[in-house]
Nucleic acid binder design. Structure first.
Length: 854
DNA sequence: GAGTTTGAAACT
DNA sequence: CAGTTTCAAACTC
């Protein structure tokens, strides 16, 4: 069975289709979503976010034992345990599957399980995360037996729970709305097993097989899957649903090393945010559902269920259960190798306020798209929010699950190899090779794993067996210390634990967007950028390269030759920027908002404190177009941060983005802020140009809406809301992800924003008041005024007529416009990011200067 | 496996 | 904020 799984070609898996078909809400099919997020295969199971652990979930003695010796990284548990764990997985999957079916059918929620498993199911997602930790793994194994029993009895319960969630959320409708599920999916559903059958299967599961198959992780896994592997297979076949997920992990581990690496980092970080998840879940049943979808899709994990139940109880058994679920989810996630291959990353806002961006920088591309689709907004603001939260939670969960799964897998493989070969080194190598870096762990010697030097710590996970660290304090036992240290570090740098790589991919599914561009791996960027001097960004010394992302404006690298994208390519020439900047200002006012907003919001760079340069599409370069498209940024969890950074730094962020994004972006405050402050004029200009020349049907509203939304938020929004054109504006505030507690806007920033708004407002309104029939105008205008608000106090006067401006615009401007037009035409949403490198930054001042120069 | 190189993180 | 030191990973041999 494992072999089957492996055999599956994730890249080609129908998963994407499946996801697309799935409605965001439907959690049954959510797995895809999870997958998409998941790009994280790598992180070892063990990774538990310290925070999660904080919860203080009881851990099995075994777990502790494993923790204890630092040197004690050997896996003491016997294959039996592993087998059990595997079975648990399987069971979990089965249950999940069942749950899906049940969910469909069932309406009532039944939290309690006959077996008392209910509690387990109720376990907090957080716990599940904890469980995922390596330690947890061990404990899980021990508990697996119990879990199995409980799971069997609890399956029904879990079903009920999920169902309840759905009902609560009103997801059903969405499900119905969901575009046709893939046939496979349906098939899968139809094939879903009865609880009884599942139970039987679970009972029948042979742990040994799991171990044996270990080499073929997927295979074994599949075998164990509940009885009807068929169902699973169909699942896999379909879109890489659960089965696919299963494959993925293995696959990713074995095949997608790079992706794993990236994911590793990403996933770990995502785990960090696990804390938030619980809240979000608790808050919204929808989120729960979403999580279920995502996770359940893969594993049908019940974490959401438990959470959704909101049960306060946390049993160890529950933990095990959650672990199972997590594992399942991981499997599901893994199913999406394609995503990894594509490197797209998802940024999910976390309701909790923690950054939710989980970037699977690498391969999430397609997945991300799918994800977006899934998230596709309902038009209901709340719904969107819920989706977002759900996505976040789901993502984080999936990530954690992924990690745990991987860890387990690795452990299993390790054992297997060790037992078979008796060569730990071989095992090690194998693990490394297979997992890629999924299980790779730290090797800290002096920092006690309490500094960012430590990958584990930086990722927000505890060190685990795979680690070779010395004097490690990044362990559950030292939870307090870990948390304190984290706080300290965060106090110094709120973004310290934020994902380093931001994926451009626009997060939310905009109905508009259907171009698949988001996925491009190249779109992802390192937040801070690298600082390579000698490696030319061609070695893993380079964080960008290591993350399989191209260098960007934010990079200070020298002689960049990053194969994933040179910094040069990424940035627009300063000239371009300068030119566009000066004149654009007036023009820019219109469109840019939208684009800018989006770009900023989504642009990882924006988030980066570093001043993003104006990101222009390469002038007419082919790459530019693709890049631009790819650059679309998801609102990074750091968006908040970004805003701050912008406020602080005059530099203009780059814009990327698509009309699609607009709606979403409009919602985001971050965009607005960044937009107002940082968004480079250039961007705005470019956008304006775009509009001017190539008005997009959707643009106007979208753009305006987004821009307006931003403005509103900054200015209190009232005005914009009023704007009839900005119907989208109203939506603006809906997205919540910017509110990450971690990186809340500073008061100062807010003030700045307000000021900018004020100034801008005048401009905007003026503009709006102008005849400007073109929505574009409005957007651009609004933007400009805001930014334009020259420090001098001069108000940048937007051209009364964009057309005039355009026509009058000097050569440089035109060139800029042309450039944009070419690049953008087909991709309205795209918004070239303008990065002003260094001096080139396009702060308002710069823009003014440019103008004056012009 | 040891040593070197590299660049991020931390420190001053 | 810039420069320096420390650190651990990546890399080389």
């Amino acid at each position: 069975m494992w072999s089957k799984v492996e055999a599956l070609d994730l890249s080609e898996s129908p998963f994407s289709n499946y996801i697309s078909s799935l409605s965001p809400i439907k959690h049954d099919k959510a797995p895809h979503v999870a997958q998409g997020f998941i790009g994280l295969n790598s992180p070892p199971l063990v990774f538990t976010s310290p925070r999660i652990n904080t919860i203080g979930r009881p851990q099995s003695s075994s777990v502790e034992a494993s923790r204890n010796g630092e040197g004690d990284k050997k896996i003491t548990h016997e294959s039996c345990i592993l087998e059990r764990s595997l079975t648990e997985f399987q069971e979990g999957l089965v249950t999940d599957i069942r749950n899906e079916d049940d969910n469909k059918d069932n309406v009532s929620v039944q939290p309690s399980s006959s077996s008392g498993c209910v509690d387990e199911y109720l376990a907090d997602p957080v716990e599940s995360d904890c469980v995922n930790s390596a330690y947890a793994v061990n404990s899980n194994l021990k508990q697996s037996n119990n879990v199995l029993q409980s799971s069997v009895s609890g399956l029904a319960d879990s079903k009920n729970i999920k169902i309840g969630n759905k009902n609560n959320v009103g997801i059903e409708n969405e499900q119905g709305a969901a575009q046709g599920l893939s046939d496979e999916l349906q098939k899968f559903e139809s094939d879903t097993f009865d609880l009884s059958s599942k139970e039987k299967e679970c009972k029948n599961l042979v742990p040994q097989k799991v171990v044996e198959d270990h080499g073929n992780r997927c295979n074994g896994f599949l075998q164990h899957l509940p009885g009807s592997l068929q169902g699973i297979q169909s699942y896999e076949d379909t879109a890489e649903n659960v089965g696919g997920n299963v494959d993925v992990p293995v696959h990713s581990m074995t095949h997608d090393l790079e992706a794993n690496e990236l994911q590793r980092g990403m996933s770990r970080r995502c785990l960090q945010f696990g804390e938030a998840q619980p809240q979000a879940r608790a808050n919204s049943s929808i989120s729960t559902n979403l999580a279920d979808n995502i996770i359940s899709s893969a594993s049908l994990a019940t974490t959401s269920e438990t959470e959704g139940l909101g049960s306060s109880h946390l049993d160890s058994s529950v933990t095990s259960r959650t672990n199972q679920l997590v594992n399942l989810s991981q499997l599901a996630i893994n199913l999406i190798p394609q995503c990894y291959s594509e490197k797209s990353s998802l940024t999910v806002p976390k309701p909790s306020g923690y950054k939710s961006t989980c970037q699977s920088t690498e391969n999430m591309g397609s997945c991300s798209d799918e994800f977006e689709k899934v998230l596709a907004p309902p038009q209901d603001g709340t719904l969107e929010v819920n989706l977002c939260t759900i996505a976040d939670s789901a993502v984080s969960e999936s990530l954690s699950a992924m990690e745990s799964i991987e860890c387990k897998m690795t452990l299993n493989t390790k054992r297997k190899f060790s037992s078979e070969d008796g060569d730990s080194e071989k095992v090690k190598k194998l693990l490394n090779s297979t997992d890629g870096e999924g299980c790779k762990r730290c090797n800290c010697k002096r920092t006690k794993c309490l500094k960012l030097y430590c990958d584990c710590f930086a990722a927000g996970i505890y060190c685990a067996e795979p680690c070779s660290c010395q004097g490690c304090l990044n362990r559950p036992e030292y939870e307090d210390t870990v948390l304190e240290t984290r706080k300290q570090i965060e106090s110094r740098n709120p973004l310290a634990f934020a994902p380093k790589i931001v994926q451009p991919f626009t997060e939310f599914p905009l109905s508009n967007r259907e171009d698949g561009n988001r996925k491009t791996p190249s779109s992802a960027r390192h937040k801070r950028g690298c600082n390579c001097k000698r490696s030319m960004c061609l070695k893993k010394y380079c964080e960008c390269y290591q993350a399989n992302v191209g260098c960007s404006i934010g990079c200070r690298c020298e002689g960049c030759k990053n194969v994933y994208g040179k910094k040069e390519d990424y940035c627009v020439t300063e000239e371009m920027i300068n030119r566009s900047g000066g004149r654009l200002e007036s023009r820019v006012t219109t469109k840019p908002k939208k684009d800018v907003l989006h770009s900023e919001l989504f642009d990882p760079h924006h988030s980066t404190p570093l001043t993003p340069s104006f990101q222009c599409s390469d002038h007419g370069k082919k790459a530019s177009i693709s890049k631009l498209l790819s650059r679309r940024c998801l609102p990074s969890p750091e968006s908040d941060l970004t805003i701050l950074s912008y406020a602080k730094s005059p530099r203009s962020p780059r814009t990327s983005d698509s009309n699609d994004m607009l709606l979403e972006t409009s919602k985001e405050k971050l965009d607005i802020e960044s937009y107002c402050e940082g968004i480079g004029y250039n961007n705005a200009v470019v956008l304006a140009d775009e509009f001017h020349h190539t008005p997009l049907p959707n643009h106007p509203s979208n753009v305006i809406g987004s821009s307006l939304c931003k403005v509103r938020e900054l200015t209190n929004l009232s005005r914009f809301q009023l704007d009839p054109r900005s119907g989208s504006l109203t939506s603006g505030g809906s997205l919540r992800w910017h509110s990450s507690p971690i990186t809340p806007m500073s008061p100062l920033d807010e003030i700045k924003n307000l000021q900018g708004l004020d100034s801008a407002d005048g401009g905007l309104f003026d503009i709006l008041e102008d005849d400007m029939p073109e929505i574009l105008k409005d957007t651009s205008m609004a933007i400009k005024p805001v930014k334009a608000g020259s420090p001098n106090g001069k108000r940048v006067s937007p051209p009364h007529n964009l057309h005039q401006l355009g026509s009058s615009s000097s050569g440089p401007l035109r060139s800029g416009r042309k450039f944009i037009l070419k690049a953008v035409p087909s991709f309205p949403p795209l918004t070239p990011c303008i990065d002003s490198k260094g001096s080139g930054t396009q702060s308002k001042n710069d823009l003014q200067e440019n103008r004056s120069n012009d």
